[in-house]
Write a protein that binds this DNA or RNA. Structure first.
Lengths: 229, 229
DNA sequence: TCAAAAGTGTTCTTGATACACCCATGC
DNA sequence: GCATGGGTGTATCAAGAACACTTTTGA
C-alpha cells in the first residue's frame, strides 16, 4: 500500500541479476518471495534504495546480504519504469548486473527466512513482476559483453582450466567454439598465467590450471588493447 | 525545497542528451537555466517524471517540448543517483540519449521563456548539476555505438553525401578515416540508395547525393548482418 | 586396452590497411 | 586556368575459420 504524499512520488528500488557458472552452465540467483504480491514466486534479489545511498550502493548492499560477497563485479544494467510493473504502487527499478564466483560462495539459503537458489539461466521458473524482462536484458548484456571484455574470470574460480573457460564462453555466446582457435586467441592476450598444477581426479588427461593475471590485464587495457573473442 | 513525506522519497527526473550534426561538427542541445539552482548556467534539457508515465515517455515529452520533433532516435543511457547531485533535495535522474536531424529542426530558442542553443560537443560551457558527467557518458556511448550500428543516418538530413557521412563518423570516432576504405565499406552494406541528384552551389566537384534505405537496413538486421565500421 | 577429454599446427580465405591520381565545378 | 574538394582501384598484410590426430589419465 502506498504512503500518503502531498504530491505522490514513485518508489525507487534496485534489482540484481547475479550470474554464476558451474559444470551445469550459467546460473542466476533467485529468491522465493515470502510475502505478497507474488508470494511463493521466484524473483530477482532486490530492495528499496535508501535516501542516503546511491543506487550502486543499494545494489552492493543487496548483493552482500544475499551472497555474502563483498567485491563482486557489478554494473548498472537498465532502469525499468513501467507504470504498473508493481501491482501495489508505482515502483521504478534500477537493475544491476553482477558476476560472482560460485566457488567463493555458498548461498545463504534456508538459514535466512527467504529461500535462495541458483537456477539455470535458460530454464528459470516463472518470475515475479517484470523480472523475466530484466533477466532477458541481462543475458543480452552478458552475451554482448563477453565478446570484448574478459569477464569470464569473474565467474570462474581463481584457478581454472582452458576447457572450463571455453565452456563458459560457449554458454554465454550460445554457440560452440573451435578448441584450437579459442586457445590460440585467449593465450595470445597474455593475461593468463600457467600454474605448476594440473586438474585432479579426472578419469582422462588432466587439464592444465591457469590463473587470471589481473595486473597484466589492466596494463593492456591502459595500452588500448582489444580483447575481442 | 523538498516536499513533506511520511517517509521521504527521492524525486525522479529525466535528462536528455540530444545530439545534432552540421558542418561545424557534433552539437549538443543545451538550455540556459532561468531559475535557481545554477541560475544562468547551461544544462541538459530535462524534467520530472510524472506518476502516469514511464521514463521513456517523460524523455520523449521533454524532447518534443524542446525540439518539436516527434519520432527522434531515443534510448536510455544511464541512471545517475549521487545523493547530492541536486543541491535542493535528492533527485535521481534517468539520462537519455537522442539523435536528431538538425535539418528537420529549428530550436524553439528565445520564443520560449528559456534560451536553448546547440553547442559543439567538444567545447561546452560549464554545466549545471552533474551534467558534465552525463554528457561524457553520452559521448562515450555515441562513440561506441557508431562503430556497429549505422546511427549516422539519424543525424543527417534525408539526402546526404558520402563526405558528409564520413565527417560525421570522424567527429564521432575522433579520428580520421581513409576516404576510399570508408566508401568501400559503407557502400558494401547495401543500405544506401544513390539519388539522381548531386550537391549544388559548391565551388568544387559536386558530391553525389544518397538516401538511407531503411527497409534494406531492417532486412539485413533481421538476417543477422553486422555493420561494423 | 579402452573410454574420455586435453592438447597441438597449418592452410586457406577474408577483411583491413595503405596509398596517388584524375575529375567536376565556381570563380 | 586555378583552387577546392569529390571520386576511383590495387597490392599487401593480418586475423579468422576450418580441420584431425596424438597424449594422458582412471577404470
Amino acid at each position: 500500500m502506498p504512503f500518503t504524499y502531498e504530491h505522490p512520488r514513485a518508489a525507487l528500488a534496485v534489482d540484481c541479476v547475479i550470474f554464476g557458472f558451474d559444470e551445469g552452465g550459467l546460473k542466476v540467483l533467485l529468491i522465493r518471495r515470502g510475502l505478497e504480491p507474488f508470494q511463493g514466486r521466484w524473483a530477482l534479489p532486490g530492495g528499496f534504495v535508501r535516501m542516503e545511498e546511491t543506487t550502486d550502493q543499494a545494489a552492493r548492499r543487496e548483493l552482500r546480504e544475499e551472497t555474502g560477497l563483498d567485491r563482486p563485479f557489478l554494473e548498472q544494467l537498465y532502469t525499468f519504469s513501467d507504470v504498473d510493473r508493481d501491482p501495489r504502487e508505482r515502483v521504478v527499478s534500477v537493475a544491476y548486473f553482477a558476476l560472482v564466483k560460485l566457488s567463493d560462495h555458498r548461498v545463504r539459503g534456508a538459514s535466512d527466512a527467504r529461500e535462495a537458489a541458483w537456477h539455470p539461466v535458460e530454464k528459470t521458473p516463472p518470475l515475479a513482476f517484470d523480472h523475466k524482462k530484466i533477466l532477458a536484458s541481462a543475458t543480452a548484456r552478458l552475451r554482448g559483453k563477453v565478446r570484448y571484455q574478459p569477464i569470464g574470470f569473474e565467474l570462474l574460480p581463481p584457478r581454472f582450466t582452458l576447457p572450463q573457460l571455453q565452456h563458459l564462453y560457449e554458454a554465454a555466446l550460445e554457440r560452440p567454439l573451435d578448441k584450437r582457435n579459442f586457445r590460440k586467441k585467449i593465450l595470445s592476450f597474455g593475461i593468463l598465467v600457467e600454474l605448476p598444477d594440473k586438474e585432479e581426479n579426472v578419469s582422462n588427461r588432466p587439464a592444465q590450471l591457469y590463473r587470471f593475471d589481473k595486473k597484466a590485464y589492466e596494463e593492456k587495457v591502459r595500452a588500448g588493447w582489444n580483447f575481442e573473442v
